[in-house]
């Protein structure tokens, strides 16, 4: 009996030691990557070469910097300009560098539509970059492109007259080129959201203000 108990205890003790060894080995293996594994090394970036500190900025340097700042300011538009934020769906009218009006607008949804006839894909994005107001039109008529029909589950008509829509664009239109227009909307409740096929939609009063204030040739920045 005693020898049996002794044997049992020895067996348990052996298993425990083996278990401890296995666990220790597993811990070492698991911890190895943390100790000698790969790593990203680096640090915070800070601005270099601050201007005007101590004797590092000479008079010549300051003059050149002032000249560069003037040149930079001269690149900006003088007179009226429009800036459209396509993320926050806001349109700003500038006179010089002063904001004179901020309007809620709608810009492109970014959705895509595939034409089942030929696989062509339209992407309804508002373009970015610098554009110009090419012309302004009262009571603009929309010549509906193919996607306007495909989207509604209709085949595009061959008769051009069937594409004319004198309602959807509202009372005024500022044409930017390539089919993009700043125009009105029947869906005022969707202003502030990305809801268009690429154009910029404004509410009635804001549209009237922009149309009557911003002249043809003014720069339009979209981002």
């Amino acid at each position: 009996m005693k020898s049996l108990a002794r044997r049992l205890m020895a067996a348990v003790h052996l298993r425990r030691r083996r278990l401890v060894r296995i666990c220790a080995a597993a811990l070492v293996v698991l911890a190895l990557p943390a100790v000698s594994g790969g790593t990203w090394s680096g640090g915070s970036l800070h601005s270099t070469g601050p201007v005007g500190e101590g004797a590092s900025a000479s008079g010549d340097t300051m003059r050149r910097i002032a000249a560069l700042k003037r040149q930079l300011a001269a690149q900006g538009p003088r007179g009226w300009s429009i800036v459209v934020d396509t993320y926050h769906n806001r349109l700003r009218v500038y006179r010089g560098d002063q904001t004179v009006r901020v309007a809620v607008c709608s810009t492109g949804t970014g959705r895509s539509l595939r034409d089942p006839r030929d696989g062509r894909i339209w992407v309804f994005d508002t373009p970015t970059g610098e554009w110009k107001v090419q012309r302004k039109v009262r009571n603009p008529v929309w010549v509906k492109p193919d996607w306007a029909f495909i989207e509604e589950g209709e085949l595009p008509p061959n008769n051009p007259r069937e594409r004319m829509d004198d309602v959807s664009l509202g009372d005024y239109g500022l044409y930017l080129g390539d089919g993009y227009i700043i125009h009105g909307t029947l869906f005022q409740s969707l202003l502030g959201q990305p809801a268009t096929h690429g154009c910029v939609r404004l509410g009635d009063k804001d549209l009237e203000y922009v149309y009557k204030t911003v002249p043809v040739g003014s720069r339009v920045y979209l981002y």
Binding site: T109, W142, K144, A148, E154, P157, L186, F187, Q193
Partner: peptide, 22 residues
């Protein structure tokens, strides 16, 4: 095109889905 003009509003009057953001 126009086959459902008498049954449903024209395309321009149909509001686009509101959650079309990318």
């Amino acid at each position: 095109a126009g086959s459902t003009a008498s049954e449903s509003p024209p395309a321009a009057a149909t509001p686009p889905p509101p959650n079309g953001a990318p």
